[in-house]
Nucleic acid binder design. Structure first.
Length: 942
RNA sequence: GUGGGGGUCGCCAAGCUUGGUCAAAGGCGCAGGACUUAAGAUCCUGUCCCUAAGUGGGUUCGUGGGUUCAAAUCCCACCCCCCACACCA
């Protein structure tokens, strides 16, 4: 533990040094290429947790790498407070809501502290520094001068967003439209998710309300359905016998429905006059005309008609709706029921479910099949029926096809037929759209909420084809990390359409031309990366002096009158022009379908091409020891707790080794523990062997140097593509293994130059991932300055012509194997035999021939035509076997092989503590020696 | 269902574009040994099965076929897992 404490001290020291040197506060430098990276600002409604850090660690590692590659790199950070989470939490605290108080207590706040959180601003003021502290401690190379937070609480950002929205509006990308919202009739207001006592997450769901004319009447009964595609299977209508319905004039027609339904319709743009009440009973036995089936169908009683749902009247499709199937079955089987409502048996028996949809393995009467399989007894088994409904719907919707009796929709997949049939019903005036809540919602005032159509909802018109075209162009020209997400983006740009961009409640910026609206959180975070470039200078300007003209001046280069100080404005313009566009924006994959795509759209809308995004990174979701992170599982790791147990570098390395590309990265506690034990030791070790060794150059040094260059090449490639796991593994594990072998081979007496180069390179290549240890070690080996600001090792081609080291490794292994098998107590002598010259010649020849043919016969014939024929007897013993594989085992020319083994002689002697004798050619009295082959010397242990 | 990503020797994972040198890198874990008073670290060794003075045999890369002298790698079919399909941030 004391060791950890020591490490933490070292970290603190470097943080201080970096800060004092303003290491991460880059200045404009026209002689250097710039690199601007960032990731979505986190929400300030709690402490930073490990989920935030994976994405951020990727950005930091990339930025640090680019810095070493000579880029002028900028990594800024801001905070998000827009939207409802903070606002609702504040509201709930003010109301003393127990659950919210529990949450706050869970975060460790006292009553007194909780009191302060009744101010939205306190959330920002409290949590932003917490994030900042954690991010600093993790060693992120952030330029903190540019820090800011969102919402009207920051007037400068507020003005920026207003500017952005006016720009969008000018270009016609913000439009007004209708929109169903959850509404409290008592408060006369929209009920946001967090001002509900019940029904969080529920939202308006679109039903089709179908009108059915009653026989010999000008009245309609109306039925609500979510499944217009099943209308060809209607057999009858269900009505609640003991339910009260109303007759009302709706848009000039006479409708019958539940009272609740009428009230809802009133809120959904319909004119309603209630005329009278009517009992469900009175309608039983009447007939109504059903669309698509196009005939009159009877109205029968059932118990599942809920006046609160839809119209309280249901059209019955017993083929595909389990409820309806059971309802019909009950009527058929119950004399009592029929008598009660005076229904004739023959008439009911006449009705059978009509197969209309082929639902794959469920057949064409899925409701029947599923009800039977689940053993549902009657229409009162609600729970089972709900399950059955869901199951049947899913199968039918995704896999189903309309059968031949469905008119022009026959043969169509249900998914498509559904939309078409809905459209047709609406077009023919047989139906209207009707919104119903997906579940019960109760407002704070304890009034049940309804759906209301609002007319002045604002949308961002992501459906605009011209805009899509520009955005596609932008996508085509940017680099993706990894490239394989491109398809996903193309798809999203395709289907993205109007996005409701305003809300009534929460924190944020008001819509400049319609101040009752707040811009919602996914819409005020699409262009702000540009704000980073000027944030530090903008802070010096009075909010009153900030207006649209200023932003036009700075961002769009318009030469117009501005209130603010011209010098400062020019400075901002310069910053923006230098740093923009974004070279790397990284986020988890859930933001592909909204935020990252919006990001592209908004940039193409407002900025010229040279300011469009240049690169985007996408990664998976962090898991903890293989499990999804969740509070209930107790694996919800906060950064502050994490950093108490692990050094920042171990945390970073564990995260970045957890996964790459689109895989869900995994925080592996065992790995972290193992790193904690090994990593600091290793760094200490390489510092201790730095600059120790000989001047003289040996063969094995070439090998080490080549391995180093290979590693540098591989790691550079990986870093360029944000493959940090690969980079870390190659640098830390692979290169360390090479180094270990090297030291063993040269009996711990390495070439000074080489060993130093290996150690320096390893430290530099590790530094983007583990900066603290590397800084400390850099100093430890006597380097001046920061490793964070040094140069990435040069990529060079490996010098070594022929790598024969594998021969030594194989030999070592073979000797060990044999010695184990031989069960010799002590090996006095090891004899090594090389194959005779002619075998090398043979191998060369065969290698040539194999390029021509793979026919063993031909090759052997060819061999026998040469002077090798005199070894024919021996050759025929082993060559066919080798030729079976159509490839020779690895071998080098004899000279190289001998040289390699001779070079390793001393090493081998030491390894086995025995004498090594190298024979160039086989000895007559040692038959074993005949086994030698090119690339595989024979061994004799004595 | 559509679109995207996957399925490799306990676990994680490389390889698959460009078929052979692949029983398949590396890490983690596990086991044995050296070192140590001891633990950790470090260093060696092993880690599909069989066989054994070696470089041999067998069975493996989701499943089943196919192409080929040769398939984890190419082709076809199928199965399974994850993500998105929105106005929730």
């Amino acid at each position: 533990m004391s060791e950890l404490k020591e490490i933490k001290e070292i970290e603190k020291r470097w943080l201080k040094k970096w800060e004092e040197a303003k290491l991460f506060e880059p200045k404009i430098d026209e002689n250097k290429p710039k690199f601007f990276a960032n990731f979505p600002y986190p929400y300030l409604n709690g402490y930073p947790h490990i989920g935030h850090t994976y994405t951020a660690s990727r950005v930091d590692a990339f930025v640090r790498y680019k810095r070493l590659k000579g880029f002028n790199a900028l990594f800024p950070q801001g905070w998000h407070a827009t939207g409802s989470p903070i606002a609702s939490a504040v509201k709930r605290l003010k109301e003393g809501e127990p659950n919210q108080i529990k949450i706050m207590k869970g975060m460790g706040f006292s009553d007194k502290e909780i009191d302060k959180f009744k101010e939205p601003k306190h959330w920002i003021e409290f949590f932003a520094p917490k994030y900042k502290k954690s991010f600093k401690e993790l060693g992120y190379s952030i330029d903190w001068r540019r820090e800011f937070y969102t919402t009207s609480l920051n007037p400068r950002y507020d003005k920026f967003i207003r500017w952005q929205f006016r720009k969008l509006k000018e270009k016609g990308y913000v439009i007004k439209g209708k929109f169903p919202v959850v509404w409290c009739p008592k408060c006369n207001n929209a009920v946001s998710d967090h001002s509900r006592t019940e029904g969080e997450g529920e939202r308006p769901q679109e039903f089709v309300l179908i009108k059915m004319k009653l026989e010999d009447s000008d009245e309609y009964i109306v039925v609500a359905t979510l499944r217009p595609e099943t209308m060809f299977g209607q057999t009858n209508v269900w009505i609640g016998p003991d339910t009260k319905y109303v007759k009302a004039n709706v848009d000039g027609e006479k409708w019958i429905m539940s009272l609740e339904c009428a009230k809802k319709l009133e809120q959904q743009d319909h004119k309603i006059d209630i005329v009278s009440e009517i009992d469900g009973k009175e309608l039983i036995g009447k007939r109504a005309k059903a669309p698509f089936v196009n005939r009159y169908i009877p109205i029968w009683p059932s118990d599942f008609c809920d006046p609160k749902k839809g119209s309280g009247i249901v059209t019955s499709v017993p083929s595909d709706a389990p409820d309806d199937y059971m309802g019909l079955k009950d009527l058929k089987e119950s004399v009592e029921l029929r008598e009660k409502y005076g229904l004739k048996k023959e008439e009911i028996d006449k009705i059978e479910p009509i197969p209309i949809i082929d639902s794959d393995e469920l057949g064409d009467l899925p409701a029947k099949k599923v009800c039977e399989e689940m053993g549902i007894k009657n229409q009162h088994e609600r729970k089972k029926l709900e399950q059955a409904k869901k199951f049947v719907y899913k199968k039918g919707f995704y896999l189903g096809k309309m059968k031949d009796n469905c008119g022009k929709f026959s043969g169509k997949p249900v998914e498509i037929a559904k939309e078409k049939m809905k459209k047709e019903l609406l077009k023919n005036n047989d139906a209207i759209r009707f919104y119903e809540l997906s579940g019960k919602v109760v407002c704070r005032c304890l009034t049940p909420a309804i759906v209301k159509i609002v007319h002045d909802q604002w949308f961002i018109d992501y459906a605009n084809e011209e805009w899509k075209k520009k955005t596609r162009e932008c996508l085509n020209n940017l680099k993706l990390y990894p490239e394989k997400v491109r398809g996903q983006f193309e798809y999203v740009i395709e289907w993205l359409h109007e996005w409701a961009c305003t809300r009534e409640e929460g924190l944020g910026t008001r819509l400049p031309w319609d101040e009752k609206w707040l811009i919602e959180s996914l819409s005020d975070s699409t262009l702000y990366m540009a704000y980073y470039t000027i944030a530090h200078i903008l802070k010096e300007i009075n909010p009153e002096d900030i207006d649209d003209n200023l932003f036009d001046y700075v961002f769009l280069g318009k030469n117009i009158e501005i209130k603010a100080d011209k010098k400062k404005a020019d400075a901002m313009r310069e910053e923006f022009n230098y740093w923009y566009g974004v070279d790397f924006r990284n986020s988890a994959k859930d933001l592909v379908q909204n935020h990252l795509s919006f990001f592209l759209f908004n940039h193409t809308a407002i900025f010229p091409k040279d300011k469009w995004p240049q690169g985007m990174g996408v990664n998976g979701y962090l898991t903890i020891d293989g499990a999804k992170m969740s509070k209930s599982k107790g694996n919800f790791l906060l950064i502050k707790d994490l950093l108490e147990n692990y050094p920042a570098d171990v945390t970073r390395a564990t995260l970045l080794s957890g996964g790459e590309e689109m895989d869900d990265p995994n925080w592996d506690t065992e790995f972290a523990e193992s790193l904690l034990a090994k990593f600091p030791q290793w760094i200490k070790y390489i510092v201790s062997i730095y600059n120790k060794g000989r001047e003289e150059r040996k063969k094995i040094d070439d090998w080490m140097e080549s391995r180093l260059y290979d590693t540098i090449k591989d790691v550079s490639d990986a870093m360029e593509n944000t493959l940090f796991r690969t980079a870390f593994h190659n640098t830390f594990f692979q290169l360390s293994n090479h180094l270990r072998w090297y030291l063993r081979r040269c009996k711990n007496n390495p070439n000074k130059k080489i060993i130093n180069k290996v150690i320096e390179s390893q430290l530099i290549m590790l530094s983007p991932i583990t900066p603290f240890f590397c800084e400390e070690a850099w100093k430890g080996i006597g380097k001046k300055g920061f490793i964070s600001k040094t140069e990435w090792p040069e990529i060079k081609a490996a010098k070594l012509k022929k790598d024969a080291e594998w021969l030594v490794k194989n030999l070592l292994e073979d000797i060990r194997n044999v010695s184990e098998l031989a069960k010799l107590d002590k090996i006095k002598r090891i004899r090594i035999f090389f194959a005779e010259d002619w075998k090398y010649r043979l191998f060369d020849l065969v290698e040539q021939e194999l390029k021509e043919t793979d026919n063993p016969k031909q090759i052997i014939q060819k061999v026998m035509q040469t002077d090798l024929k005199k070894h024919g007897k021996e050759i025929i013993k082993f060559l066919p076997k080798i030729l079976q594989k159509r490839a020779l085992p690895s071998f080098l020319d004899k000279e190289t092989e001998e040289e390699a083994i001779r070079d390793a002689k001393g090493f081998l002697e030491e390894e086995f503590n025995s004498e090594i004798i190298i024979h160039q050619n086989p000895e007559k009295d040692m038959p074993k020696s005949k086994q030698a082959m090119p690339g595989k010397p024979a061994i004799l242990l004595e």
